[in-house]
């Protein structure tokens, strides 16, 4: 199940549409890292609203994705973690330290806009 990645101005938006296998998650990570270069994107949003489980593998893969993209000079925000999913993640000890999160797509875009404003158009600080 491939995750559609939309380009919107300086941002990439990946909205997960259904449950993902481990292979799907790794494919999403690799595709986003590649596309950030191709489109010279400044920010990435990963929408996980439909995910009803975020286990240790999913959390680790998203964490890796965020840090890889940061090394490419862009910011990532994870949006839409459901309340009961957040509860299970904390029980598992998966707190995603250092990863930006937002309630939904709208707040995610706002977060990236703020980041971009602070950075201006100068060199990337990643």
């Amino acid at each position: 199940m491939q995750v559609p990645i939309l380009k919107q101005g300086p941002y990439l938006i990946a909205s997960i549409q259904s449950a993902l296998s481990d292979a799907d998650l790794m494919q999403l990570r690799d595709a986003l890292v590649r596309k950030v270069s191709t489109f010279r994107s400044r920010g990435v949003i990963v929408d996980v609203t439909v995910l009803d489980v975020m286990d240790s593998f999913a959390s680790r893969t998203l964490n890796d994705l965020v840090h890889m993209i940061r090394l490419r000079g862009a910011d990532t925000v994870i949006v839409g973690i459901q309340p009961e999913v957040a509860f299970a993640m904390v029980q598992l000890g998966l707190t995603m330290e250092g990863v930006a999160t937002a309630l939904d797509l709208e707040e995610g875009l706002e977060f990236l806009d703020q980041k971009l404003k602070h950075k201006g158009t100068g060199p990337r600080d990643g």
């Binding site: 286990d55 459901q82 309340p83 009961e84 509860f87 299970a88």
Partner: peptide
């Protein structure tokens, strides 16, 4: 409950992995 169902599903995911 939905929360407990999520905890159960998450535990199964870890065990299966």
């Amino acid at each position: 409950s939905q929360t407990d169902s999520t905890l159960i599903a998450t535990a199964i995911s870890e065990l299966a992995r």
